[in-house]
Simulated assay, not measured.
Amino acid sequence: MTAPGAAATLPIQSSDDVVRVRQLVRSLAIEAKLSLVEQTKVITAASELARNTLVYGGSGIATVEPVERNGRRGVRASFADSGPGIPDVAQALTDGYTSGNGLGLGLGGARRLVDEFDLTTAVGAGTTVTVTKWAR
C-alpha cells in the first residue's frame, strides 16, 4: 500500500475509500508497534473521521503517516474536506453528540480514542481534523 515510513494521501470519495483509509491506518499502526488496543482505537477513530469527511464534507483527502517523537512511534492521520464546515464546534465535540449517520462515536468519541486531536473548521470553507496515536 505504501513504502515503510512513508506518508500517503488517499482520496475519500466513496465507501471503498473509507475502507482503504482503515487498511492504511492499520498497516502503519502495526508498523509503529502499537498494541492491539491502540491499533483498534486509532483505526476506529480514522474510520469515523473518514466517514465524516465523505458524509458531511462530500469528499476530501486523508493523509496518513508514521510519526516519531522522543523515541516514541505512532500514527498521524489528517482528514480534510471543502464542505460546509462545522457551525457549532462545541456541540459537535459534545460527548454523545452524533447525527446518527456515522459509527455513533461522533467527533467527541474519535477525540477520546486518540492521544492528540486537532480540529480546524470554517463555515463554508471546510474542515480538517488531525489525530495522532502513540505507542505506549
Rank of each mutant, 00 (worst) to 15 (best):
N52P: 09
N52E: 08
L54E: 08
V55I: 12
G57N: 11
G57P: 09
G57F: 12
G57V: 14
S59T: 13
S59A: 15
G60W: 01
G60T: 02
G60H: 03
G60Q: 04
A62V: 05
V64Q: 00
E65N: 03
E65T: 08
V67A: 02
R69T: 09
R69M: 09
N70Y: 08
G71Y: 00
G71H: 01
R73W: 08
R73I: 06
G74V: 05
R76I: 03
R76Y: 09
A77K: 01
A77Q: 06
F79K: 08
A80C: 09
D81H: 05
D81Q: 04
D81W: 05
S82Y: 11
S82W: 08
G83Q: 05
G83F: 04
G83A: 09
P84C: 07
P84T: 13
P84V: 13
P84I: 11
P87Q: 14
D88V: 14
D88E: 08
D88F: 11
A90N: 14
Q91L: 14
Q91R: 15
A92D: 04
L93I: 01
L93T: 00
L93E: 04
T94H: 11
D95S: 13
Y97C: 08
T98Y: 04
T98I: 06
T98E: 06
S99V: 15
S99A: 14
S99K: 11
G100T: 10
G102S: 08
G104H: 02
L105A: 01
L107R: 01
G108Q: 07
G108P: 09
G109W: 00
A110Y: 06
A110Q: 07
R111W: 04
R111I: 03
R112L: 10
R112T: 14
V114S: 03
V114N: 00
D115Q: 05
D115R: 01
D115H: 04
D115G: 12
D115V: 02
D115K: 01
D118T: 14
D118H: 15
L119C: 06
L119H: 04
T120R: 13
T120V: 15
T121I: 05
A122E: 10
V123W: 10
G124Q: 06
G124C: 06
G126L: 06
G126K: 04
T128A: 11
V129A: 10
V131R: 11
T132M: 10
R136C: 05
